[in-house]
Design a protein around this nucleic acid. Structure first.
Lengths: 223, 223
DNA sequence: TAGATTGTTAATCGATTAACAATC
DNA sequence: TAGATTGTTAATCGATTAACAATC
């Protein structure tokens, strides 16, 4: 028969430390941490304290520590954070170690731009297929009609949707059927949500509009 | 000599109603309102109540009313909001009636994508010049060297920066000198801030990283 | 007029900051 | 050991929601 302290020991090992679930605000900051950590890594910085990082990023050290603490104890008292270790941890947290495979639906300029962006260039996420109404064998763009039959074999987990709203909506059932777990929606329209599938809407216009607003608001304040 | 009530009358007329200054959270929602209003306008909807809009947008009616009330009394009790009127008001608030002129620094795929996006297609903001290290007369791309001399004549208020960080930083003084008020920064690097000039950083990667995170987080919850 | 819906104030909720004991 | 810096709890701040009088 097991002794009490043995049982307790086993229990403590199995149970993860109770952490506060990351708020949406925290999640939105994760890509930002990832970017800064990547930069520090590239610069060869070996360690960094929350206050040093805070100065670089323009956020409070408190916030950094609290954000990170949602996911684990990545730092060390009196030392700070090991850059390489923290970077790898955040990479995992973001799911970049899950080997995501993305299929591009639409081969226009948005698709091309995203393919040139760090996530895809670095291979954090891999593009495994590009489909478009207008096929283009030279550039590896497959005809959209063949999507239903060829999608399953690609074993994609994500889709990047850059077709116009109507076409986008029509393709969704095929994505769902092929087990796509997340759709990055640049269509500009609303895609009907499905269980087990996350739709992340993107509006590339928004930053531009916000800038126009802020420029106008600045002018008012000064005059 | 003026009578007291005359003085008071003048006073009331001059003074604008005290409104709460829009929070950053409110400002971030403005492009979203603009989008939905544009859609309603296109659909020919003449009026909409905050609760009807709330149902479409998936936010609370309270929030809509409070957001809009920061900028003016655009609605009417018992009626709701006139779609055309509200749309035009939000357009003004966003500064789209200020006739912004944008110069593009860098003519790569990000620039092309943005030029195809609604803000520029609709002419909410006008592109008045494109510069790149690699000139391309056919596509209207001017050599970057000529920027200093030709910028002033373009009377641009905004700049869209898509050069890599180092080049971007080098161009900034010329933008400042030409009186550019806002820079949309896609360079991925930090641009040194200047007075009278707003820098809006954009990281096209971020939504993709957040999607990867959310897909992973969803998986954990279910298993 | 009666019904509907706003603008606004008060109550709730959540996120950020400050502080500090734990500890490397 | 002494100094530094974390993880975490408590205090503050801001944003969202609910409620309602004003009014079209």
């Amino acid at each position: 028969m097991k002794r009490i302290d043995q049982v307790k020991g086993t229990f403590d090992q199995d149970r993860e430390k109770a952490r506060s679930i990351p708020s949406d605000a925290t999640v939105k900051r994760l890509p930002r941490y990832y970017r800064y950590l990547s930069r520090l890594l590239a610069e060869g910085t070996l360690r960094i304290s929350s206050s040093a990082l805070s100065a670089k990023m323009g956020v409070t050290a408190s916030q950094i520590r609290q954000d990170l603490a949602c996911f684990g104890d990545f730092g060390q008292q009196g030392y700070g954070y090991n850059v390489r270790y923290l970077h790898s941890k955040i990479s995992r947290i973001l799911g970049l170690s899950d080997g995501h495979r993305a299929v591009f639906i639409g081969a226009g300029s948005i698709a091309r731009t995203l393919l040139e962006s760090p996530v895809f260039c670095r291979g954090d996420i891999r593009c495994v297929g590009i489909f478009d109404r207008q096929a283009d064998p030279e550039r590896g763009v497959l005809p959209l009609d063949t999507l239903p039959e060829s999608l399953a074999a690609l074993r994609a987990t994500l889709a990047v949707m850059t077709l116009p709203p109507r076409d986008a909506e029509a393709v969704m059932p095929h994505l769902a059927a092929a087990g796509i777990r997340g759709v990055l929606n640049y269509s500009g329209g609303q895609l009907t949500e499905r269980e087990h599938m996350i739709v992340q809407n993107v509006y590339p216009d928004d930053p531009c509009l916000m800038l126009a607003y802020r420029v106008g608001a600045m002018g008012e304040k000064e005059e």
